[in-house]
């Protein structure tokens, strides 16, 4: 199901997933594992998009509900949802998404710049757009998924 496009410089593999009616993708190198939904322990005094923490083989990993992070409405997760565990720097974070849809190969030439829109969320997360078979898949930057430092915590 992969869609190889013209190979060239900076070819990378991307993993695509669905959240609501939108599709996003992240670099496959950042993905540690994909697992089913398990109930998370809620954390007090945390942003709304942090659903809580789960136990991942002895490590306590926070779960970010990606839809809420992007400002979309929250859905009560079911067994159909998946958690994509990604590595960001030294930390491991679980992204709660609806489903994993595709694995793509793309290079820089395939990626179109994000149109200049005023949304801060788009500016923060969307690095580029990838047209595949008439679908639009947003390439996501993971750097700002978790709240930064203490300022946002307050």
């Amino acid at each position: 199901m992969s869609k190889p496009t013209n190979s060239g410089a900076n070819t990378r593999e991307l993993i695509a997933f669905r959240v609501g009616r939108q599709e996003f993708c992240i670099n496959v190198m950042a993905v540690r594992e994909i697992r089913g939904w398990t109930a998370a322990t809620a954390l007090p005094r945390s942003p709304r998009y942090v659903r809580g923490v789960i136990n991942l083989r002895g490590a306590v990993v926070p779960i970010v509900e990606f839809a809420v992070r992007l400002g979309l409405p929250s859905n009560e997760p079911s067994a159909r949802n998946v958690i994509i565990v990604v590595q960001i720097g030294h930390q491991q974070i679980g992204l709660l998404v609806d489903a994993v849809s595709d694995i793509l190969t793309a290079n820089d030439a395939n990626i179109q710049p994000t149109p200049d829109v005023s949304s801060d969320l788009v500016k923060t997360f969307v690095k580029g757009l990838l047209p595949v078979d008439g679908r639009m898949i947003s390439l996501i930057s993971l750097d700002h998924v978790l709240p930064q430092g203490e300022q946002e915590a307050a």
């Binding site: 398990t38 109930a39 998370a40 322990t41 954390l43 007090p44 005094r45 945390s46 942090v50 809580g52 923490v53 789960i54 136990n55 002895g58 490590a59 306590v60 990993v61 926070p62 030294h90 930390q91 491991q92 974070i93 978790l146 709240p147 203490e150 915590a153």
Partner: peptide, 27 residues
């Protein structure tokens, strides 16, 4: 004792976390 800071950050009022017998996390 499992640190919360390792993958997240410190939370006021919570010292750390632990894994319970059923595999869930407790604070």
């Amino acid at each position: 004792i499992k640190s919360l800071e390792a993958n997240y950050r410190a939370i006021p009022g919570i010292a750390a976390s632990t894994v319970m017998g059923d595999g869930s996390v407790a604070l």
